[in-house]
Write a protein that binds this DNA or RNA. Structure first.
Lengths: 350, 350
DNA sequence: TGCCGATGAACAAACGATTGCGCTAGCCTA
DNA sequence: TAGGCTAGCGCAATCGTTTGTTCATCGGCA
């Protein structure tokens, strides 16, 4: 059992409050230097660390943040989390990680538990456009930041990419390559990234004066498996698309695998563009052309937004939106990304 | 500000303790049914949730676990963490995630902070053979479990694989394929996995009556980059090895990339075996032959060990060791794992 | 009528820390 | 020598729960 203030006080023959003040380096503290050094010696000797629970109760601050994501084994969210922790740890915060598997019910129960725990702030990267649990966050007035996906029912603090533009750029790239029948492996229409990237896909067609075949858009969700299933459907029709824009890299990966199994050569028979530029995208073969977004920064910026809210004790409305960059690899242009890959993995001998 | 017991007590004209008893469904509680229903209505109406901090202070239990790992963006540790959370969440525990980047100093500071926070248990997957911070854990008598890597300075609760056997099986596989000059991209000798897998590598040679060239073993650490650097060194000598046993899949991946850059064909010129069977290993091309270990189970078993300790309030000494399985893929046998890959990714159309 | 036992709920002491305020000496000053 | 100032600490409330104990009330029974 760790040592408490009271015990130290007994050993030093002073009142607990005095120990507390010395331990916390209370600036306006007037104390005899003899007493001070006696206490400081005791603190060092016992390695006293204030009980964070008691401290949290009194100070109404736990120094804990929470990150709510669908699944940390998805490299996108793993990188996001690192961004959060890298920003939070130096400021003395620990971070709870909650996986929802995309289930609103698990998200709700996690959020409820986090609230009971009185975490100082929550980062949610698994929200829906209409999201009851985000609504609750909004009403509770506790610090929170939405990442990657936002909710359109209110003005929440947000960090993410310009998904409309990203969808447009990705699709425009395929159009420039001469494709006219471009399929879309869409995200869910209930999720901001799904909705916006799809709108970008449509906008690119409009801008190019290209007709859109609604039959070429299929909701593929966000996992590799669902991407694979959707692709199989899309490629089984009479007049299959010659290119695919997938809502995420994971979906693109599932698509590439299935396409290959079905005998399509990539990119000759089927070009594929993903989104997010997860590390995997550059290392599979062929490398996946994708929209690069600063995933780690998503996390660190969100954490900073949160920490600033906590320290200033006032909510923010800031919405940070990064502009995605097209990264061309072999999944759309044969031989294109070889320079990319070698750059990424060109380790020096020392 | 969430509602407190005291406020509810005032509204219900009862003492806070009565509310607490009703809310907690105190079994031996004698209460007038009128009072009970009045209170229950109030609880529902306000959605009262006890303050976890205050509760933790009184109960001396936070219902928080912590996982300390080198880096969650490494898929091995991401899967490990999921295992922990999947076992902990149903039992009402949240999980803190701490990344150390393999730095003992960061591990120490994290562990210190976790102790101050009074987390109920700690899972450490980043320990060294001689590890001062593990020694502290051991002395503090708080629940903890070591995962994947152990420390040899004491009998700690542990979950991991039989690394000696694993190293032996991996190397024996290469020997059976006819290789006689087998390189080893070793882990650090200060880490149990590094030491044991290397001993397995040696044991396999001995068992086969094969001489060991010490020049073919080089310490490669655990990252892809360090694996690449080490491989470049190993392949630059006059008489390079024809096969490589890498301490982890990440290291094997770095090796494969560099080998290819240097003009080696895999597996014809250079066969490669990894360890852990991370998802990446089966999806790169060529697929990496590797020792399969149940990563998710590492996490869930460790969590269960921890939770049992917490509930029974007594430490355990249990050491769980899984037997690793050889998975043969194209990095050692051309065309071998095509069945593997398609099995893994053979999505049904529905 | 008087006493006893149950019943229903209040009391109060923790848990360990923080912090505004008050109290006691001692010394200086007028 | 009285009054005041200040240095150096102690006091006690507080954060929100939990839980063993006590207290009041009422009904029943002799």
């Amino acid at each position: 059992m760790p040592v408490t203030l009271k015990e130290l006080a007994a050993r030093a023959n002073v009142h607990p409050s005095t120990i507390s003040r010395v331990a916390n380096n209370d600036p306006g503290l007037r104390i005899a230097s003899a007493t001070r050094s006696r206490i400081e010696a005791l603190l060092r000797e016992t390695g006293y660390r204030p009980n964070g629970i008691a401290r949290g109760l009194k100070m109404r601050q736990t120094n804990v943040l929470a990150v709510v994501i669908p699944d940390v084994t998805n490299p996108f969210f793993a990188a996001l989390f690192r961004g959060v922790e890298d920003a939070a740890a130096p400021r003395g915060f620990n971070v709870l990680l909650c996986n929802t598997d995309g289930l609103p019910e698990r998200q709700r129960s996690h959020l409820e538990s986090l609230q009971a725990r009185r975490v100082d702030g929550v980062i949610v990267a698994s929200s829906f456009l209409k999201d009851p649990s985000v609504r609750e966050l909004r009403e509770q007035k506790g610090p929170y930041v939405l990442v990657n996906r936002f909710s359109d029912e209110g003005e929440d603090p947000f960090v993410g990419s310009d998904d409309l533009l990203g969808g447009q750029l990705a699709t425009a790239h395929l159009i420039e390559l001469g494709h006219t029948r471009i399929g879309h492996l869409a995200g869910k229409s209930t999720v901001s990234t799904g909705m916006l990237r799809r709108r970008g896909y449509l906008a690119a067609h409009t801008a190019a004066g290209l007709p859109v075949d609604p039959g070429l858009t299929v909701e593929a969700g966000y996992t590799e498996e669902s991407g694979a299933v959707a692709t199989r459907r899309l490629l089984s029709v009479d007049d299959p698309p010659t290119a695919l824009f997938a809502v995420t890299d994971m979906v693109a990966l599932g698509a590439a695998e299935v396409a290959r199994q079905m005998g399509f050569r990539i990119p000759e028979d089927l070009a594929i563009v993903g989104y997010n530029d997860i590390p995997l995208a550059s290392r599979v073969s062929p490398g996946i052309t994708t929209m690069h977004v600063p995933i780690h920064e998503f996390g660190s910026v969100a954490a900073r937004l949160l920490l600033d809210q906590i320290e200033n004790d006032e909510p923010t409305r800031r919405r940070v939106r990064f502009t995605p960059d097209l990264i061309v690899r072999e999944s759309t242009v044969a031989g294109a990304a070889s320079s990319q890959r070698s750059r990424r993995l060109n380790f020096s001998a020392e």
